[in-house]
């Protein structure tokens, strides 16, 4: 007899942050691509509109990033992000083997979700890199482009704006790649839509045998 056990994993503040962040970053990616590959012959959207939307959602995402940081500080959510370097390699290998092999053999996941463990090691590493490297990097370089007087004019031979812009675009691209993988991995599981429901209503269903 299996019955469904619900655990509350995504508190309201986290869901609000996540919604703003997800929507904001989707807009940032679309408008960012529009600007980067702007072409008079093929217009995805008006350039001026793209610039304005990009600026507004960039600011929204930056502000909501502080919600994420403060929320994590104040609640116990940050404990899910704690990473032990020791044994990390083995744990990551286990998870990768599961995703590429075990999952097709109907094996059970090596790091099942529980109240104590929201993320498997791969998720943890990915979220840490994205939330503490990519997103802050994007925010800082984005501010630099919005207020060019803040950044160094020249770094050796190179123009400061040029470097900042390249870094910004590269981080934006990597974040887009993360998003694609993030969306796909979230659909893994018995019911592909379950995780998406969780990030909306907060509850995660586990099957107890």
């Amino acid at each position: 007899m299996t019955h469904v056990h619900k655990i509350y994993l995504y508190p309201l503040w986290l869901r609000i942050w996540h919604a703003i962040n997800a929507l904001g970053i989707l807009i940032l990616i679309t408008t960012g691509i529009t600007m980067q590959y702007s072409n008079p012959a093929f217009k995805l959207m008006n350039f001026e509109l793209a610039v304005n939307l990009h600026n507004i959602s960039g600011i929204a995402v930056s502000v909501s990033y502080f919600l994420f940081i403060i929320g994590n500080r104040l609640t116990h959510n940050h404990t899910y992000y704690r990473l032990k370097l020791k044994g990390l390699y083995t744990k990551l290998t286990l998870q990768i083997v599961y995703y590429t092999y075990g999952i097709f053999k109907n094996q059970s996941p090596p790091f099942p979700i529980s109240e104590k463990r929201k993320f498997n090691p791969m998720q943890k590493v990915a979220y840490l890199i994205v939330m503490y490297l990519f997103v802050p990097g994007l925010i800082l370089t984005g501010l630099g482009l919005l207020f060019p007087e803040l950044i160094l004019e020249n770094i050796y031979q190179l123009s400061g704006i040029f470097l900042t812009a390249i870094l910004h675009a590269s981080l934006g691209f990597l974040t887009s790649i993360f998003l694609i993988i993030h969306l796909y991995v979230a659909s893994i599981g018995k019911y592909p839509l379950n995780n998406f429901r969780s990030i909306v209503n907060g509850y995660h269903d586990t099957n107890i045998h």
Binding site: Q36, Q157, L158, S159, F162, T164, A165, I166, A169, S170
Partner: peptide, 23 residues
């Protein structure tokens, strides 16, 4: 590279473009 101005859209780096498409 040494250009003092970076104009969004106008300085598309071919190398970066190909790398990102492949990735």
């Amino acid at each position: 590279i040494a250009n003092k101005a970076y104009v969004i859209g106008a300085y598309q780096n071919n190398l970066l473009n190909s790398v990102s498409i492949i990735l």
